[in-house]
Design a protein around this nucleic acid. Structure first.
Lengths: 187, 187
DNA sequence: AATAGTTTTTGACATATATCAACTCGGCCT
DNA sequence: AGGCCGAGTTGATATATGTCAAAAACTATT
């Protein structure tokens, strides 16, 4: 729980009382490799935090499996549209390694945000961070070549390249496995 | 000011006292056509609301003028990364029509969000809405063809196509003017 | 109405990346 | 150890969209 606490504290500090109450709302699961976390076509009710391990957010687009997000140790992840719009998402999530994952349910988070201004602020900052990331990623997809996107990932998160299979990385970067392979071999 | 009030109320209601205080923090400008709103390479200090008119958010990427966002009547707009990260942005904004625009300064917004839980909640919901939009747009850029993106814009906001020049629409859709022209002529 | 200026269209060609298909590599199982 | 299976590589070809250049269609101004 300490990793989660300190990850949250980095985003926005909570008073001791609020923190205690807030931490109580999180549940924790220990999952083996290749285990589902969120089933496709359901409403994704949780924001997750991965203490240790790796998880992949994906969906099927035109019969193809697309990696939407890759989360390694100490990262948060969620199905944004499903969670906030309370609508079933095409998104699924599964572990890529044995992982320890915590999650907080939408209802619990919202009622805490309602009760505690500090939690509302924390949530606002988390969402803002996500939004900035989303903008950067959009820019990258729209204007950078496949090579540049790969280089950016390598710089930003070499861990991903070390721990995740190329098939998943390719669709995460929005390119095919073949193109990624050619990029890595240097043309 | 009523348009702004009701746009805000639609996102998250404020108590009468908070609303009064909050509305006071907004400034309003009346601008002619083709007038700058935010200069490039400065920190964008405001979240804007356009009562009536049209504005374009743009930046220069590799010597090209790229439209980042188009806002018509009753929409909010801002330079997300610059505003929240407090960093100079490459982003500029200018009017495309004679417009009435209001804005709230970062410092004022943040101090109000600090003081009033309700404002914090409003801000959180605005950011969440932006995030969802950003996700949808990313998905569109990554997986839809130019034709599909144009069709989507036509369905979602025919006003934009009626009032904004094709040059700007093209870069907003992430395609060239020539490609857009061919799409419109039906191949 | 004529001119000048901008915006849009059209055409020929270039290019990054996708697609399809075959081959290779490396780990895993009995 | 041999063989199998999924993952990754390599090659040939296809395609959507970009680039460059010129023509045409609007718009505004005198």
């Amino acid at each position: 729980m300490d990793l989660l606490k300190s990850a949250l504290a980095k985003i926005s500090p909570l008073s001791p009382e609020t923190e205690t109450a807030f931490m109580d709302a999180w549940k924790t699961w220990e999952l083996p490799k290749d285990h589902p976390v969120v089933r496709e076509s359901t409403i994704s009710d949780y924001i997750y935090f991965i203490h240790k391990g790796a998880a992949r957010t994906y969906y099927i687009k035109n019969g193809k499996d697309i990696t939407e997000w890759l989360a390694l140790d100490q990262q948060f992840f969620l199905s944004i549209t499903s969670f906030f719009q309370r609508s079933p998402s095409r998104l699924g999530v599964h572990t890529l390694e044995p992982s320890v994952i915590s999650g907080i349910h939408y209802n619990d988070l919202m009622s805490m945000a309602d009760k505690h201004h500090e939690v509302e602020r924390l949530l606002r900052k988390m969402v803002t961070g996500s939004l900035i990331l989303s903008q950067v990623r959009m820019d990258s997809i729209q204007f950078e070549t496949a090579q540049q996107r790969y280089d950016r990932l390598l710089a930003y998160s070499p861990e991903i390249i070390r721990r995740v299979s190329l098939t998943y990385i390719a669709s995460f970067l929005g390119i095919t496995l073949e193109t990624l392979s050619r990029i890595r071999s240097g043309k």
